[in-house]
């Protein structure tokens, strides 16, 4: 056995698991129907889902605002057209009898 391999053996000596490991493992073994979720696999999707939901809300909010502005513009245009139409009708009502008198 050479010295380097002895050093390697010392470096790779067994280590104790964190405190309470045995108790936690036994407790988990007692819950067969509740499958433990893989901790790290779920962390990323949770954050990703929250981020995606925030982005979707922001996009939806912007689109709804644009839709509302469009609706307002449409209503204003319709009102303007309506007023213009009424005024044209009034003018026509005045012009047509005047021409008829001539």
């Amino acid at each position: 056995m050479n010295q380097f391999e002895d050093q390697l053996r010392r470096a790779l000596r067994p280590v104790d698991p964190p405190a309470g490991f045995v108790e936690r493992t036994l407790a988990l073994a007692g819950e067969p129907q509740r499958k433990r979720p893989p901790r790290r696999l779920l962390q990323f999707p949770r954050y990703a889902m929250a981020l995606a939901a925030s982005l979707a809300l922001a996009v939806f909010g912007l689109q709804y605002r644009e839709y509302q502005q469009g609706q307002q513009a449409k209503e204003q245009l319709m009102t303007a057209l309506h007023i213009t139409g009424s005024q044209l009708t009034q003018i026509q009502a005045k012009v047509v009898p005047a021409n008829a008198e001539k």
């Binding site: 790779l12 000596r13 067994p14 280590v15 104790d16 698991p17 964190p18 490991f21 045995v22 936690r24 493992t25 988990l28 073994a29 433990r36 893989p38 901790r39 790290r40």
Partner: peptide, 27 residues
């Protein structure tokens, strides 16, 4: 537990992940 945890720890060098792997092995 020390043997299983140590294999995972020396291989993964991530304490939480090593515990998770060791628990999965025992389960």
């Amino acid at each position: 537990s020390a043997m299983v945890f140590s294999i995972a720890w020396h291989y993964l060098h991530d304490r939480a992940l090593a515990e998770e792997v060791a628990q999965d092995v025992f389960l």
